[in-house]
Amino acid sequence: MQRGSTIEKLPVGKDAQRVALENARKALGSIILGKDRQITLALSCLLARGHLLIEDLPGLGKTILAQSLATVLGLSFCRIQFTSDLLPADIVGVSVFRKDSGEFEFQPGPIFSQLVLADEVNRATPKAQSALLEAMEEQQVSVDGNTRALPEPFFVVATQNPADQIGTFPLPESQLDRFLMRLELGYPDEANERELITGDDRREMLRNIDAATTPEVLQALQRSAARVRMSEPLVDYIQALVRQTRESPHIEIGLSPRGARALAAAAKAYAFVERHSGVYPDDVQEVFASIAGHRLKPAGNTNFRSAAELCQHVLDSVDIP
């Protein structure tokens, strides 16, 4: 499709950032095959300064996606494997007594990285979960009464097995809200699965890949993404969608104003990645399921089997102004 409407009037310097973003997208696409839509969504999530929750069965490439995001975006990376005996100190760090100096010294935990992968976040106890969630919300952690700022940019990519597995503590709805997007990866298609079976080891590939951007460029991109134009009719559209989630008989609890803001921010970032000259209705529809899916509470008597179907139903019942 011809895009005669791409953002052309970018000032000097932004072109380089653009190129970096495209390169990042391409590099991610070469590692995670056939998941272009999810990659674009994940990038949009980070550009909208949001945290990402990836929910799927084991072995579908959740960890690889998080790792390659960190590598490609040039962010410092740390992985925390959540287990049922994980303690908050294992996440944020501890103060250690040094014998030679006679003082306590703070040993920063894995959370002090720009991109933190919280693997299988629903396996840990609510106490450990909340240490992570506080850090996500406040962009800082409190240890021994001291508040320590986290690095900037700071992203959490959490992965979660679907809740019907044994021995998990599902995140409550109120905490799911802290994740801007929830993504499902799904199985690869035939051709890509074949390539995965025969091709190089993905972790090996990751080691040979270069960073496409720097944290500074990423921050500049975030600022540009926040400035994408949102026209009046499009704001009307977002409002109509939000209203529909509240009024639909299939939904018990609809989107909150925070959810509406999240939808707008994510749509802006998506439009930015797609190089649209403003937020188009397509951008809103593309991000809608990942924004609303984990925020909506379906009504008890609904016949929609998944959040995705529910979201599609909302999209299909609202006219685009």
């Binding site: 499709m1 011809q2 895009r3 005669g4 409407s5 953002i7 009037k9 134009r229 026209s231 009719p233 499009l234 649209h276 000259s277 403003g278 937020v279 188009y280 209705p281």
Partner: peptide, 11 residues
Amino acid sequence: TASYLDARYGS
């Protein structure tokens, strides 16, 4: 379609 999107929602 491209012109419409640009004119109505875009620049």
